[in-house]
């Protein structure tokens, strides 16, 4: 029997949708996908998290039983830090290259939130 594994992008979209659904204060997300490794990296704007001097990712293992076959890494920032990152005044860690970031709005993943 052949098992078709979900793509990294498909999994990322599901994860982002779940985060929007669970965190009512999440306003925006940027997805960083690279061919260099298997990690799904997501930068999320959510009010209620403290400001930081340097954004640090929280890393999670893959969870096959939950339909997440890739490890993920999430950075949570508030509006103030989000603006600094967008304006290039705050740097993200290596492999979090803003040039490769893709915006994922709540509307874009709305169909996955049901």
């Amino acid at each position: 029997m052949t098992t078709i594994m979900k793509s990294k992008e498909e999994t990322a979209m599901e994860l982002i949708a779940a985060h929007y659904k669970l965190d009512s204060e999440m306003k925006d997300a940027k997805l960083f996908l690279t061919n260099q490794d298997r990690i799904i990296r997501i930068l999320e704007l959510t009010d209620g998290v403290p400001s930081c001097s340097r954004p640090s990712p929280f890393n999670f293992d893959a969870a096959l039983s939950e339909g997440v076959p890739y490890p993920s890494s999430v950075i949570l920032v508030n509006q103030k830090d989000w603006d600094k990152i967008i304006n290039g005044k705050m740097k993200l860690p290596i492999r979090w290259n803003m040039k490769n970031a893709r915006n994922v709005s709540k509307e874009e993943v709305a169909s996955l939130m049901d």
Binding site: L15, D23, T46, V49, F58, F60, A63, S72, V74, L76
Partner: peptide
């Protein structure tokens, strides 16, 4: 918020 994002 971190716990909510833990896929497990």
């Amino acid at each position: 918020r971190i716990a909510m994002r833990n896929p497990s």
